[in-house]
Amino acid sequence: MIVEGTVLRGPEFTPIEGRVVCEDGRIDAVEETEAESDRIVLPAFVNAHTHVGDSIAKEAGRGLSLEELVAPPDGLKHRLLRRADREESVAAIRRTLRFMRSGGTTAFMDFREGGEEGVSALYEAAADLPIDAFALGRDELAALEAGDGYGASGAADAEFSRERAAAREAGKPFGIHAGENRTDDIEPALELQPDFLVHMVNAGPDHLDRVEREGIPVVVCPRANLTTGVGLPPIEELASRTRVALGTDNVMLNGPSMFREMEFAAKLTDLPADRVLAMATRAGAELAGLNCGVVEEGREARLLVLDGDSDNLAGVRDPIRAVVRRAGVADVLDVIHPAQNS
C-alpha cells in the first residue's frame, strides 16, 4: 500500500511532499518525493480515555452534577447500565466504535464498567472492526485478568492497593481518575504509583511537582470537564512537566471525536499545534503500548488520510494547525489499520 500527499513525518510532524509505503502492517518507508496529491497523511488517533459503555445514555442527565451523573454505584449512568441487557449494550457500543473509526481513531483505552462481563461485552462490540479496544476493567479482579489493565474510579471511592498490586504482577497498566472535582483523592492516587492519571483538573503545585518528579503521564479530557462544570485541566502546566494524552471521556457527555478534543484543547491553550497533535496520537499510543503515533519507518501502519482539497481544508497554509484546529470527520478520506496491509 502506498499513500501520497503532504506527509506529517516523524515525531515533530514535519510536513513533506512525499509518500508512505506500507507492507505487512508496518510502515516500510517514508519518502520525500514529488506527489501529485492534495492528501494530508498523518498518524491515526489513539483516544486515551473513554467510557463507551455510556453509549446507551447519550445526552442523559441534563443539569445533574458530576456525582449524580457518574459516581459509582448509584450515579445515573450506573443505574442505566444495570438496566440495559447485554445485547442492547453491545449494539450501542459498536455504533460508537464505528463513529470513532470514521473520525480517524484506530485504538482507544476504555475504563470498562461491569467487571469481567463488561470487558467481554466491549470485546464483542469491537470484534471484526478495524479499531483496537484496550479494556481497563474494574469492579473485580477478574476484569483485570480478562482485560488489558485496570481502570480505577478514584481513590475517594475505594481502596485500590490490591488491584494495583495485581496489575503490577500481571504486567498490565493501572490507571486511576484523580483530581476531577476534588483534591483529596490526588495524594492517595499518587501513593498507588499508577501508570497514568486521568483528569487532574484540581491538581495543586505539590501534586504537579510530584507528577513531574515521578514521571507519571496524565490523560486530560477538557470537553468533559467543561460539560460537568468541574473546571478545566491545567494542560499547559502539565505538558511542561510530563507526557499528556487526550481522551474524550464519557460518551453520554460528548461525542468521542478526537478532532473536537484537539480543537478545544488547542483553542483553550497557547500550546503549538504539533504538541496538541502529539497528545492525540503519540502520547496515547505510548500509554497503550502501541508502536504507532508517528509516521516513520518501522512503526505500525496506523494512518489517517485527509482530503486537503476539501471545501474545509483547501487553501490552508499550515497543515499541522489545520489538522488540529479545523479538520473534521467530513475531511477524512481513509483510516488505515495494520490489518488492511498485513
Rank of each mutant, 00 (worst) to 15 (best):
G103Q: 11
A44N: 05
A126V: 01
P272C: 05
D24Q: 12
S55M: 07
D54E: 05
D184H: 11
A133C: 13
N341V: 07
L69C: 11
G175V: 01
L97N: 05
G289W: 09
A327T: 05
K58Y: 14
L271D: 06
A266V: 02
D309Y: 08
G5P: 11
T105I: 07
T14G: 07
F108K: 06
E23Y: 14
V244C: 02
V201M: 04
R112N: 02
E67A: 13
A152E: 12
E17Y: 04
R83T: 15
A322E: 09
S37L: 03
G151W: 12
I93P: 01
H177M: 05
R210P: 14
D249K: 00
S153K: 06
D309F: 02
D249S: 03
N291H: 08
I176W: 04
G298P: 02
A283E: 05
S102N: 07
E169K: 01
V52W: 13
A135W: 15
A245P: 02
I176Q: 05
E191A: 12
R321V: 10
A245K: 00
D334C: 00
L268V: 02
E23T: 06
E263H: 06
R317M: 13
E87Q: 09
I27W: 05
M200C: 07
R282A: 12
D157R: 08
R317A: 14
E263W: 07
G118E: 12
E59L: 04
T105A: 08
V20N: 01
N225V: 05
L141W: 10
R9P: 05
I56G: 00
